[in-house]
């Protein structure tokens, strides 16, 4: 396998995670449970969008066909998107959103922590910059998981239900294939099993503090990383790409 191609797969999948999750965040804008949360979510959305832009620009460079982040975001079709199924799940209620972000944030945080030592120069710099943002995301969502778990009966029940429902989408973060094996061998990405262990440790710690149950289910859905998505993604892309596709000759800057 070619190192460049393997990196392209990984960088695209990470860029797509950030892009698609930021899209879901923007759907909350103006509808959050409190003005302070609207502000916090916008912060998170802006961080994710910035990260998506850097990663997808880099993906365009690796690909070598002269495409930039906007081309990657606005001109690919569903099957070419490599984001996790987790991040495309609908927002649901605030507990659903928090549970989705929390699981992603823990993964994102530990992944970036390791990417600071990647053999890839871009990824090292990217991780160095993004880790500060993601540390805040993780703080924000873990605090909400704890507040909900140890808040009222209603909030406890809502967050536990949300966690149980979204749980099956968490396994995809740690699925291994020949690309991940190769990238790990090349020192580009960390060992996936070690990453998974850190993730489980942190999730257990937060759920424990929240008086919530760690789900027992072992079945895990997959497909996103291979471009096989849920029905949700098509609608999101239809929205996102509407103007660019309707007016192919137009420039929007």
């Amino acid at each position: 396998m070619n190192l460049n191609e393997a990196k392209l797969q990984f960088v695209t999948s990470q860029g797509d995670d950030a892009l698609i999750l930021s899209h879901r965040v923007t759907e909350w804008c103006g509808h959050g449970p409190e003005l302070e949360e609207d502000i916090a979510l916008s912060n998170i959305g802006l961080d994710l969008l910035g990260q998506a832009q850097s990663l997808l620009n880099y993906a365009g460079e690796l690909e070598g066909k002269g495409r930039n982040a906007d081309d990657m975001a606005y001109k690919r079709i569903e099957r070419e998107f490599k984001n996790l199924l987790l991040v495309e799940q609908p927002n649901g209620n605030y507990a659903d959103t928090i549970a989705k972000h929390f699981f992603y944030d823990v993964y994102h945080y530990f992944l970036l922590l390791d990417l600071k030592n990647s053999s890839d120069e871009f990824l090292r710099g990217f991780a160095e910059k993004s880790i500060k943002e993601v540390a805040y995301h993780l703080r924000h969502t873990s605090q909400w998981v704890i507040r909900f778990g140890d808040g009222t009966e209603e909030s406890h029940e809502k967050i536990q239900t949300a966690i149980n429902q979204i749980w099956k989408y968490t396994g995809e973060m740690f699925m291994k294939d020949e690309i991940s094996d190769f990238l790990e061998k090349e020192g580009v990405i960390p060992n996936i099993d070690a990453l998974k262990a850190k993730w489980e440790g942190k999730v257990r710690e937060v759920l424990n503090e929240s008086t919530l149950k760690y789900p027992e289910t072992t079945f895990m859905a997959k497909g996103g990383r291979d471009g096989i998505h849920s029905e949700n993604l098509g609608y999101m892309l239809t929205d996102m790409q509407y103007l660019v596709r309707t007016y192919p000759d137009a420039k929007w800057d």
């Binding site: 899209h23 923007t26 759907e27 804008c29 103006g30 003005l35 609207d38 502000i39 916008s42 912060n43 959305g45 802006l46 969008l49 910035g50 998506a52 832009q53 982040a69 906007d70 975001a73 606005y74 999101m236 929205d239 996102m240 509407y242 103007l243 660019v244 137009a250 929007w252 800057d253």
Partner: peptide, 20 residues
Amino acid sequence: TRAPSLRRKMILLAKIQDEA
């Protein structure tokens, strides 16, 4: 969700955040 470029989307989101 329909902003036509990542830059436009970021600017718009930042603006709405200012309003909050």
